[in-house]
Simulated scan of single mutants.
Amino acid sequence: MESNNPLVSVIIPSYNREALIAETLQSVLSQTYPNWECIIVDDGSTDNTKGVVQQFIKKDKRFKLFDRHREPKGAPTCRNIGATKSKGEYLIFFDSDDIMLSDMIKIRANCIDANSKFDLWISAVGVLKQNDTSPRVQKKTLPISDKITLEEFMLPCPRTPKWNTPAVIWRKASFLKLLWNESIPIWQDIDLHIRAIDQSFKVYSTQYLDCLIRIDNNDTNRISNHRYSFTKLEAKRNIALALTEVLNKENIPWMKKILALEIFQGIEDSIVTGQMKKHTLTNYIRLFENILPSNTLFNLVQGYFFVLNVLRQTNLPYVKGILIRLQHDALINKILK
Score class of each variant (00 low, 15 high):
3 S>D: 13
4 N>A: 08
8 V>E: 12
12 I>P: 03
12 I>L: 13
13 P>F: 04
22 A>F: 05
23 E>S: 02
29 L>V: 06
30 S>K: 11
30 S>G: 07
33 Y>E: 14
42 D>G: 03
46 T>M: 14
46 T>C: 13
49 T>A: 09
53 V>R: 08
54 Q>L: 10
54 Q>M: 04
58 K>C: 14
60 D>Q: 04
62 R>I: 00
63 F>P: 01
67 D>I: 04
68 R>M: 12
69 H>W: 13
71 E>F: 08
73 K>G: 11
73 K>M: 01
74 G>R: 09
78 C>N: 14
95 D>E: 13
96 S>F: 14
96 S>R: 07
99 I>Y: 05
102 S>Q: 12
103 D>Q: 10
108 R>S: 15
109 A>Y: 00
110 N>W: 03
110 N>C: 03
113 D>E: 15
120 L>S: 14
128 L>D: 09
129 K>H: 12
132 D>M: 07
132 D>H: 15
134 S>I: 14
134 S>T: 11
135 P>K: 01
138 Q>A: 07
139 K>F: 11
139 K>I: 14
139 K>N: 12
140 K>I: 14
152 E>H: 07
158 P>I: 02
163 W>H: 10
164 N>C: 11
171 R>Q: 12
172 K>H: 03
175 F>A: 07
176 L>Q: 04
179 L>R: 12
179 L>Q: 08
185 P>C: 14
188 Q>W: 02
192 L>G: 10
194 I>A: 09
195 R>V: 10
198 D>L: 03
200 S>I: 05
200 S>L: 02
203 V>D: 15
203 V>P: 03
205 S>T: 12
211 C>H: 11
213 I>A: 07
213 I>P: 08
216 D>R: 00
221 N>T: 09
228 Y>P: 02
229 S>F: 02
230 F>Q: 00
230 F>N: 09
235 A>R: 01
237 R>S: 11
241 L>I: 04
242 A>S: 06
244 T>V: 01
245 E>P: 00
253 P>N: 12
254 W>N: 09
254 W>D: 06
257 K>M: 15
260 A>H: 00
264 F>V: 04
266 G>N: 05
266 G>E: 00
270 S>C: 07
270 S>W: 06
272 V>C: 02
275 Q>M: 05
283 N>Y: 00
284 Y>A: 05
286 R>S: 01
291 I>E: 03
299 N>G: 08
299 N>V: 03
300 L>T: 08
303 G>N: 08
306 F>D: 00
309 N>M: 06
311 L>I: 03
311 L>G: 02
312 R>T: 07
315 N>G: 04
317 P>S: 02
318 Y>C: 13
321 G>W: 10
321 G>E: 13
326 L>G: 14
328 H>C: 06
334 K>P: 05
